Amino acid sequence: MSPARQAGHAARPPDFSAHEFRASLGMFATGVTIVTARAPDGALIGLTANSFNSVSLSPPLVLWSLAHHAGSMAFFRNGSHYAINVLAADQQALAERFAARGIDRWNGVAFSEGGNGAPLLDGAAAVFECFNRSQYTEGDHVIFVGEVERCSHRPGASPLLFHGGRFYAEHPL
């Protein structure tokens, strides 16, 4: 039990709608990632996620989250490794493809195999190859914390950004 709950404190019920909450969250610009893995039977797993963040430099930890109802949840819950591919500005089509349902997401997608077996997408701005270190269930999502075993980046690559329901490329101020 959290210390706040032990002391008799709890959050007040929200005074806003789910739509207002989503719209407010959309004001936080994020990068766009595709989380990839290889299932025990060799099948390729991949999905678009913008819930990526750093956690720690020592040890090197990152996090991302996945909705409970996601079709790939069972694999990520039980799998030992995955890769987080930070998309470059010219990879919007990949972000849309890996967010779509009912299609072969991997058809024609160029990738190499990472050291832990997870697919690494060609052209990504950065890649983090992770051990599935820990998981935390919160609300309607599971937060995955990955311990980074390998990482790389493409010097000079501009990241793909997402804000207010639309994709953007960076423009320095």
Rank of each mutant, 00 (worst) to 15 (best):
P3R: 11
A4V: 13
R5D: 07
R5V: 13
R5P: 00
Q6V: 08
A7Q: 15
G8C: 12
G8V: 10
H9A: 12
H9Y: 14
H9M: 13
A11G: 08
P13I: 09
F16I: 06
S17G: 14
S17K: 06
A18V: 05
A18K: 07
H19P: 00
F21M: 11
R22L: 04
R22M: 05
A23F: 02
G26T: 07
M27D: 03
M27N: 14
A29W: 09
T30R: 05
T30F: 10
G31T: 05
T33N: 14
T33E: 03
T33A: 15
V35A: 02
T36F: 09
R38N: 04
A39L: 05
A39I: 07
A39Q: 11
D41S: 09
G42N: 08
A43S: 15
L44F: 09
G46P: 03
G46A: 09
G46C: 11
G46E: 06
A49M: 04
S51H: 09
S54K: 03
V55R: 01
S58W: 01
S65W: 09
S65C: 15
L66D: 06
H69S: 15
A70Y: 07
G71L: 09
M73F: 07
M73Y: 04
M73V: 02
A74D: 15
A74K: 10
R77K: 12
N78M: 02
G79K: 06
S80V: 04
S80L: 14
I84W: 00
I84F: 00
L87E: 03
L87I: 08
D90W: 07
Q91K: 05
A93M: 07
A100H: 11
A100G: 09
R105S: 08
N107G: 09
V109M: 06
V109W: 05
F111N: 04
E113S: 13
G115Q: 12
N116R: 13
G117M: 06
A118H: 11
P119I: 09
P119G: 11
L120P: 03
D122M: 04
G123F: 03
G123N: 06
A126L: 08
A126D: 01
F128P: 00
F128K: 00
E129A: 13
C130T: 02
C130I: 02
C130Q: 01
F131A: 13
F131R: 03
R133V: 00
T137N: 12
E138V: 15
G139D: 09
G139I: 08
I143E: 03
V145Q: 11
V145P: 01
G146W: 01
E147K: 08
E147P: 01
V148P: 01
V148E: 04
V148T: 12
E149Y: 06
S152P: 00
P155T: 10
P155F: 11
G156K: 11
S158D: 11
F162M: 07
F162V: 05
H163C: 15
R166P: 00
F167Q: 08
Y168E: 03
A169G: 14
